[in-house]
Amino acid sequence: MRLKPVSRVRSAAHRRALSGLLAVSLLVLAACGSESSDADEGSASLSSVTVEGKQGEAPEVTFDGRLDPSKTETDVVIEGDGEDVAAGDTVEAQWWIGNGYTEKETQSTFEGEPQSLELGDEVLPFLTDTMVGHKVGDRILALIPSDKAFGKFGGARFGIGNRDAAVIVVDIMGRSDTVPPPPTVPPLDGPQGEEKKPAGWAPTLLEQDGIITGLDFTEAHKPTGELIATTLIKGDGAKVKSGQTLIVNYLGQVYDAEAPFDESYTGEPAEFPIGVGSVIAGWDERLVGRTVGSRVILEIPPNKGYGEEGNADAGIKGTDTLFFVIDILGVSEAD
């Protein structure tokens, strides 16, 4: 079932819907990841984790033993003196995620600008639960079971298995008393901005009557296992922020496949929250910070896509590398 045209007014439910297979291939993420046995589960508590560094800068996190995946603990590592944070507030924040079983970092936003998001239903539980009740300026360390941190689908897209403990470091950088109104600028009909020469590794776009129909991998490199992106058009619009609803046209194709597994160019643009875990990690990590009007190609390895289980409904195996061409047509604040 396709979305109605983006120019029409939508309800909150419609704004969270995706067209056709995208609802399966991007939003319904399998709860894969490591399935550590009970004998292998750790027993260490949050006190065994050391966090060093200044608030607002990437933390240095060290572990002293595997963490208990059944515990929920929090600790304020650095105390701020700002305003209290409540549910529904719009905050600026940075976060770091680690796996308490493997003792490795799995995601960090500290390489870029602070993320702006409204604490509520659109935000993953670990962000809302960790920040609400704390202050601007706080650095919070949390130990949370995977299902409680990331919801019923678990944290596979964050490299956290179903029976692993999630270790979260959150810096609350600021708070806004008012939620900005949705922009009045309508979505674009297509990419708009400065044309760029794509990277040599990228597949070639196949078009018919000006509509993208697929990707040609003849001159493309073999997948590297890394999450990479190249810009074909650098948009001249607003910068995409975490928590916003993104309006895009896209086409997705498995490396060396003859046809795409999903696309929106022949139908209506898709809408979904970005930067908050509603889509595969590769989209969240490479679309936040880009500008409206941009056209990009993403190469997404399995661990930033659907993990070892893949996505059977979309015909994607756990070893498949995904390529997407994406046109960013607009952004609006999430309902």
Rank of each mutant, 00 (worst) to 15 (best):
E219K: 15
G243C: 05
P269I: 10
D313R: 14
I280R: 05
I228V: 05
A220V: 14
Y255S: 10
E263L: 07
E271N: 11
G282R: 03
I297K: 07
G214N: 04
Q244Y: 08
G243Y: 05
E194N: 09
S264P: 03
N249F: 03
L298R: 01
E258A: 13
V185Q: 15
D216K: 04
A199Y: 07
P302Y: 12
P301N: 08
K234A: 06
Y255I: 12
R290D: 11
G214A: 04
T231W: 03
A220L: 15
G190E: 13
L215T: 02
P191Q: 14
V296A: 05
E309P: 01
D209N: 01
E226C: 00
Q244M: 11
E226Y: 09
A220K: 15
T224K: 15
S242P: 05
S264F: 06
T291Y: 05
I233F: 09
E219M: 12
L251T: 00
T224I: 06
S264M: 09
G305P: 09
S242V: 12
E268D: 08
E308P: 02
I297R: 04
V292W: 06
Y255D: 12
P260N: 00
A238H: 15
N249W: 04
L227E: 01
L227S: 02
P273I: 00
S264V: 08
L188V: 08
P260F: 00
A199R: 05
E258W: 09
I280T: 03
P301A: 13
D236A: 12
G235H: 08
R290M: 14
E219D: 14
P181H: 00
P198R: 15
G235Y: 08
N249P: 02
G282M: 05
P198H: 15
E263D: 06
V248E: 09
L227G: 01
G293E: 11
D216C: 01
A270D: 14
G214Q: 04
I233A: 10
L188K: 13
G193N: 07
F217Q: 09
L232I: 09
V254N: 03
V288F: 04
S264Q: 05
T291I: 02
G190R: 14
G235M: 08
F261E: 02
I212A: 06
E299A: 03
P186E: 00
G282N: 03
A238E: 15
P223Q: 00
K304R: 07
E308K: 15
D256E: 13
L205T: 10
E226F: 05
E207H: 06
P301T: 12
K197H: 12
G310E: 01
E268P: 03
L206K: 15
V240N: 14
P223K: 02
G305W: 10
S294Q: 06
T266P: 00
G289V: 10
K239P: 04
F261T: 01
V185M: 14
A312D: 04
N311R: 08
G252W: 01
N303S: 12
G210P: 06
I247E: 06
K222V: 14
P269W: 09
A259Q: 00
R286E: 08
T218I: 01
G243H: 07
P301Y: 11
A202V: 10
G289H: 15
Y250K: 10
T204Q: 15
T231D: 07
T231Y: 02
V292Q: 08
A238C: 11
